[in-house]
Design a protein around this nucleic acid. Structure first.
Lengths: 141, 141
DNA sequence: TGCGATTAAATCGTATGCGATACATATAGC
DNA sequence: GCTATATGTATCGCATACGATTTAATCGCA
């Protein structure tokens, strides 16, 4: 049995993710951020000063992806990277003033995405929860 | 207003897509395929001999991604790439015997994914349609 | 205390994605 | 028929993703 692309749930997720990033692109270009960088900053706006590992657990990325990404954010002056005093294996990521300032400039983005989605907030919330449930099943949780 | 990661529909899609690809990984490793390569072959199993552009419209990728991907599939002996006689701008992608043979070796994959999803076929189908609707809205269709 | 096992980041190699551009062929309008 | 435009691929540069390995620091336990 071979399913065609439109029948595959995996392709629905794959293409919807790309469509979503396409919506974010012009909004994030204004802030000079890429989409994964925006996710990392979202985690830091919620809780500042986190280790690379802690950030990775939230955005589901490992240090092989995060380290270069965080170095680019550091070069842009958005975060600082400092070795932890207690445990020198860990690197703490901290927002700079410029990094905190980006939160305000990004505040309008969720409403833009909601509008582009063409769905009500209720429908979108319900869909989000279903997708999250599927993800957790796939992860074997 | 700033949403936290777990509240964001975009992050649900993003992380679910990664989780899905993680499920496919060991299944596709057996076939020596990457996930996007598998999507392209799925389109070719449905309809052989398609141009780069036609494949791109189905998998939602442009030639900048497809050309190197198709060259790798050609190197593996899975497809052939030949200029069209009528219109030399176009390149026809055709399955080889080895490429067609992969369809049988991939036939068990949908059932594996269904099982890992932890959802019924009905629920999964309904979810797929909702995600597809969201995607089409985001694309501005 | 000392040393093997574990942990946290970083590094390396390969394969996407994608914006921007280049190149070749085909088409349209005169 | 000739040229301007349009179309289909390919190329280039940059930023993810991620498996595998490396390096440095900490921990566990005899």
């Amino acid at each position: 049995m071979t399913l065609a692309l439109p029948d595959m749930i995996c392709f629905a997720l794959y293409s919807a993710t790309h469509a979503m990033q396409h919506v974010y692109k012009p909004l994030l270009d204004d802030l000079g951020l890429t989409y994964p960088q925006y996710l990392v900053l979202t985690a830091l706006w919620e809780q500042d000063k986190q280790t690379v590992g802690a950030l990775g657990r939230q955005v589901q990325l490992d240090s092989n992806t995060l380290t270069p990404l965080l170095k680019r954010l550091e070069e842009r002056g958005v975060v600082t990277r400092t070795r932890d005093d207690r445990d020198e294996r860990q690197v703490n990521i901290t927002l700079t003033d410029a990094g905190r300032a980006l939160q305000g400039r990004a505040a309008h983005i969720p409403a833009c995405v909601l509008e582009k989605s063409g769905l009500s907030l209720e429908d979108l919330t319900r869909l989000r929860d279903q997708i999250t449930t599927l993800r957790d099943h796939l992860r074997g949780a």
